[in-house]
Each structure stands twice: as structure tokens, then as C-alpha cells.
Design a protein around this nucleic acid. Structure first.
Lengths: 243, 243
DNA sequence: GTTATATAGACATATATATGAATTTGAGGG
DNA sequence: CCCTCAAATTCATATATATGTCTATATAAC
């Protein structure tokens, strides 16, 4: 039994929620693992099971945890393959979803442009890794991405052959660099394609492209990656539910 | 004290939630009004306050109700001005948000095209109201909308001067037709503008436009309106949070 | 009449307890 | 070795109760 460290003026269930977010951010439990049972947490923090449940309710609503009746409560692994591919529908001729292949055009360490440094919360001339890649369906390019990462925790990316590790970057970040992407903010807009991206995407001049900018964060909210993706507008379809 | 009518195999808090959704859909309470207190509901349905709170929790999470400590629990009025204007940023030169004016180009009753009938859940040749309008910032058209409504509950719209009642339709639906929009689903995509909409929006050929299709429903989930809006891509910027 | 103050009403937090339902584990039987 | 079934574990539902906090209203003081 040990005490909560947070702001004692807050409700106890909020204190426990904050405490658990910290524990998750500090890797006390890994994604996919079970947290202690409600009874164990109640004993550990000397509160009733009802209060523990309320704290867990909040984290479930926030998408951090996932309950399974009879099994336990688990750290949820964010499903980012669904994120980008909720928007872009890449399908084969017979209609099944596919993840486009990845071809990396360049990956280098450079001083951060000011916009990137600001997005990632870095100092003015911090070193960042810049990656350019193309996503392809067969021979057809469908998405052009530029990706920026702080150099320090992601140094290892410069020393391996990324194309051999599959098209999804976030599992690579986790296994190679120990960085877990937990949430992201995206901004979405459309524009007429410029000359450079028209060539990359095999699009005629002035074709409409969708532009998605994404800032990905870890469990503690620290920015890990900033990227900008441009894709064919025909492939783009996004659905929103209001209220 | 009277019994719940729903499926008795469901948890009681779910039964109460379902019951209250029906009451709201049947206008037992209007948007903005307070529902009975937790103690009163507990007495009315012969359950504990804790169970009532859980049912209310669900409706609050769904955005149907809104709690105010010390005052009561209220039917939430959806804020749809924020919906479209979370996507499109219409601002004056000095940066303040504005709602574009509305000019209705046409409003007529016609047999429903099959796609519209399907979206609205109507029979094959049901009568619908078709409205075309342009949204303007000063002299500049920024949005072209086509709006489809089932004729029966919205007949009154054909008999008044809509342009004199301001640019927001949902308050008009509520006051003139007694129809309250409670939720909506939107689908978002981009395309190159066609000749007709290029003329309407004063855009050169092949400019990128964002297309938003919306199906609006009442509290019971019945479709009330289907619309398709096209707007300048430059004005469009949408932000999403993913976990 | 205006301003404090007290009170009542309503939701918020917290605990305790009992029972139900889904899952896992492990003992026995074949 | 495999299958079945019972028991233990864990979350889900439901109730009861006490106290705190916020709001609105009524009362008292000036």
C-alpha cells in the first residue's frame, strides 16, 4: 500500500487516473499487458474497488485501457493501421483492403527547420531525421510522405535497412527505438498537386490531392514524429459521426 | 412508479437509457430542458440512484444529455454551427469567425432520386424537397449546397421566405417543422471542381474542392436531411485526434 | 433596496457489499 | 493424452448510504 503522489485537491479517482497514466508512460506495463486487478489496485492505493473502477472507466473512455470481462484490463495498443487507412481506401480489384508497400527515397539527419522544431517541441537548431517515402499499390504510387523525427531516440533508424522491415513504421519505432506512439493529432486539407508531388504520384498537373499532417505523441504526450502525407483525392474518403 | 418497457434481458441501466432515448425522441422533454432529478427517476422506475446515474452517464457520453452540478441534467442541443465550421474556416480580414450568408437558388418538391430515397430511408418514388443554395462571404461564394428533405414533415418550408430567416437551417427545421436534428454522419472527400460548381463558386476549371455529404437524424435515429456541400479547398482545414 | 448569510435542492465523490457473467485453471475420468 | 466439469478469478451489475460541492432561493441585516 503506497500513497498517490498527485494533487490531493483532485478527486481520488482522478489522482489514480493521473498516477496510472504516469506508470504507463514510464513503461511499468507494456501495450497488450494486463494491469493489476481492480481488487489489487484498491489494496495498493488503499481505496475502494468502486473508486478504482471509476479511474479505470476514465482511462477506458480515453482509449488507453481495454476491459475484458473475466480476463482483466489491458493496455490498449493504438491501432494506427486503421488511422490512415480509415481515410484512404486502398483496395485490390476484388475489393479487399491492402496496406500499400513502402519505398524509402531518402533518410538523412539534418538541422530542424523551424516549423518542424516547433511542431516537435525541440530547440532551434536541434538535429532531426528526415525521411521521404512513397507508398505504392503494385506499380502505382498512391501516397507521398515526408517524416520528421528527433534524432536522439531514433538514431537507430539510420543504421538499418528500413525497406526490409515492412511498410508500418510504428512497430519499428517500438522495437528498434523503444518509442511507443500512443496518440496523434491530424490536420486534413486538400490542394492542387505541385510539380514535385505530381511527378512522385504520377498525377497530371493540378490534380486534387489530400494533405494530412500528423503529430504523433507517446503516452506522456511528448511529440515523437511529425509527418505530412499527400495522396490521390480519389482514394480519399473520411467518415465522421457528430454527436 | 411504472415499469420499463424494453428488453428485460438487458441490464437495467441499459433499459433505462433506451427508455429515456424514446422519451426524448417523443418530445417528453425539449432540448435545453432539465430531465427529472436522479432521485425522482430512481423513484419513478423503482431502481437505485446509482443505476440511474449509470444510465445518465451513458447518455452524457453519447452527447445526448449534459450535467450541471447543483442545477440538474439537461437535454443537450447539438451545436451544428460548430460542425461545418470546424472544417471550413471562414474568417474576416482581421481573423474573426463568421457564418457565411445564405442565398437560396431554388427550392422545389420532386420525386426522390433513388440515391436520395435510399439515404433518407424512403420508398422508391417518395416526394422530397430539393433545395440549392450558395453560401457567401460578402460577394465571394465559398460553399455550394444541395439539400434533400422528405416532403411530409418539411412541407412548410415551401411556403415561407427562407432567405429572410438567416443562414442556419436547423433552427428553422425546429421552429417551423418541429423536427430536431440530434446527430449526423458526414463523409468527406475532395475532387476537381466540375463546370457547374466552378461557375457557382467562381473557381477556375480543375480547382480542388472539398465535398462533404451529411445525413442528419433526429433523436430516434430517423433520417431527416441529406445534403452535399462543396467548398473551396483553401478554406478547408479539419483536425482529428486519434488514440 | 441592497447585500450578506443560511438553507434546500441537485449532482459529485467515496465506500461497502452482494450477486451475475465470462474466462481461465486444474483436477478427474476415460 | 484429451476431454469434461468444477472452482477460482476477474470484470459487470445493482443497491445502499454518507458526505462534499455547486447553484438558486429565501431570509436577515444593514
Amino acid at each position: 500500500m503506497h500513497p498517490l503522489t498527485g494533487d490531493a485537491r483532485l478527486p481520488r479517482y482522478q489522482q489514480l487516473r493521473d498516477h496510472m497514466v504516469m506508470q504507463i508512460a514510464n513503461n511499468r506495463w507494456r501495450p497488450g499487458e494486463a494491469i493489476p486487478t481492480e481488487a489489487a489496485l484498491a489494496a495498493e492505493f488503499d481505496m475502494s474497488v468502486g473508486t478504482v473502477r471509476k479511474a479505470v472507466d476514465v482511462l477506458v473512455a480515453e482509449g488507453v485501457l481495454e476491459r475484458q470481462q473475466g480476463r482483466g484490463t489491458f493496455i490498449r495498443r493504438p491501432q494506427f493501421q486503421s488511422s490512415l487507412f480509415r481515410f484512404f481506401r486502398f483496395e485490390t480489384a476484388n475489393g479487399e483492403r491492402v496496406v500499400p508497400e513502402s519505398r524509402i527515397l531518402a533518410i538523412t539527419a539534418v538541422p530542424a527547420p523551424s516549423a518542424v522544431a516547433q511542431a516537435l517541441g525541440l530547440g532551434a537548431q536541434a538535429e532531426v531525421i528526415r525521411m521521404q517515402r512513397i507508398r505504392l499499390l503494385g506499380a502505382q504510387p498512391v501516397l507521398a510522405e515526408e517524416i520528421w523525427l528527433p534524432r536522439q531516440p531514433f538514431q537507430a533508424l539510420l543504421e538499418v535497412d528500413l525497406d526490409s522491415k515492412g511498410p508500418l513504421l510504428y512497430p519499428i519505432y517500438e522495437h528498434l527505438c523503444g518509442q511507443v506512439v500512443a496518440s496523434a493529432e491530424e490536420t486534413l486539407t486538400a490542394e492542387a498537386v505541385d510539380a514535385v508531388h505530381g511527378r512522385l504520384l504520377h498525377l497530371p498537373a493540378d490534380s486534387p490531392v489530400v494533405v494530412i499532417e500528423r503529430l504523433a505523441r507517446d503516452y506522456a504526450g511528448k511529440p515523437l514524429e511529425w509527418r505530412r502525407s499527400r495522396g490521390h483525392a480519389q482514394h480519399f474518403r473520411y467518415r465522421i459521426d457528430i454527436r
